[in-house]
């Protein structure tokens, strides 16, 4: 004998654990543009991380006989067979496609690691400050102000001289700067939410601060957070290029999309492909990231599908 008569049509849908994320995933799959962009992003990642292994070219070996040769140039390999430079070669005769793939590894990692660091710290910090309010908030935000005032370059130079040059450290350094803006955005949003009646209702249920933050507040700020995160990715990629230019980031013969575009820009008139191909990879990635981000934001908004 059961007191709860669950209608048969409902039974499969009644999964108490059916969370926001599961619902969001179902909605995201219906957004074809976002799904297509997601696939393109996966493809770009695969090309960058698997491609260099399949490529006949070593991106670090120069060939001064084939300096800045246009796309489609053939070259004889060590074993005597011929292979094509699909995207041409750079000013030192290195295969551009392979260099773009290798550079993509650096750029994508920067984008991922630095943005994740910024997201994690920024959201947790901003949400805590905004929710607790009062003196805690004042102290936490003054700390952010102080970090804002610190010149970024000096901060990174300090870090690199203290811990030596390491790519991971650079990613962290960039992330450690980008979270400042993220925390301010989140704090402003949370301040508005903390006064909402549903948050007071959650407090009245005796829920702990952590539960209120993670269950009731943060899911409601995801929209602007995702949008800002997709804006952060290109920002950190360009920051990496600037650092590399100063000799603090990737060092030749390594490359990143930022440094490739930089090189391409200087040789734009004589060898335009040096700019066009890396810029195309960079743009397509950012373009897809934006659409996928928008799709994710809409999918997380439970009202999105309705009206």
């Amino acid at each position: 004998m059961s007191t709860a008569v669950i209608p048969a049509t409902l039974a499969p849908a009644i999964r108490p654990g059916r969370s926001l994320w599961q619902d969001a995933w179902a909605r995201l799959r219906k957004n074809h543009l976002a799904v297509a962009c997601g696939f393109v992003l996966i493809a770009v990642v695969l090309i960058c991380f698997v491609g260099p292994r399949l490529s006949p070219w070593n991106p670090e070996v120069t060939n001064l006989a084939l300096k800045a040769s246009p796309p489609g140039t053939m070259e004889t390999l060590a074993d005597g067979s011929m292979a094509k430079h699909w995207f041409g070669t750079d000013t030192l005769g290195r295969d551009l496609l392979t260099r773009i793939m290798r550079g993509g590894q650096v750029s994508l990692m920067v984008g991922l690691v630095a943005t994740s660091v910024a997201l994690l710290i920024g959201v947790a910090y901003g949400a805590t400050a905004g929710y607790l309010g009062g003196r805690t908030d004042a102290v936490m935000m003054r700390f952010v102000d102080v970090l804002y005032a610190l010149p970024f370059m000096i901060f990174v130079i300090l870090l690199t001289t203290m811990f030596g040059k390491s790519m991971l450290l650079m990613y962290m350094a960039i992330g450690a700067v980008e979270w400042l803006t993220m925390s301010r955005i989140v704090r402003a949003q949370v301040q508005g939410l903390a006064r909402q009646e549903f948050v007071e209702a959650a407090r009245s249920l005796g829920l702990s601060t952590a539960v209120i933050l993670f269950r009731h507040i943060i899911p409601n700020v995801l929209g602007p957070v995702i949008v800002y995160a997709t804006l952060t990715v290109p920002a950190v990629m360009l920051l990496e290029a600037a650092l590399s230019f100063l000799g603090l980031g990737v060092q030749p013969p390594d490359s990143s999309w930022g440094t490739l575009i930089d090189d391409g820009a200087t040789n734009m008139e004589t060898s335009p492909w040096l700019l066009i191909y890396p810029a195309a990879f960079f743009s397509i990635t950012l373009f897809c990231l934006n659409f996928a981000g928008d799709g994710l934001r809409d999918a997380l908004d439970v009202r999105g599908g309705k009206d």
């Binding site: 009646e197 007071e200 009245s204 899911p219």
Partner: peptide, 23 residues
């Protein structure tokens, strides 16, 4: 937090008092 369960509140604005992201 334990005592809170004994007193509960119904708020004025039914549009703001439910978390829009929870079923």
């Amino acid at each position: 937090r334990a005592a809170r369960l004994n007193f509960q509140m119904v708020f004025q604005d039914p549009y703001a008092s439910l978390n829009p992201r929870l079923t």
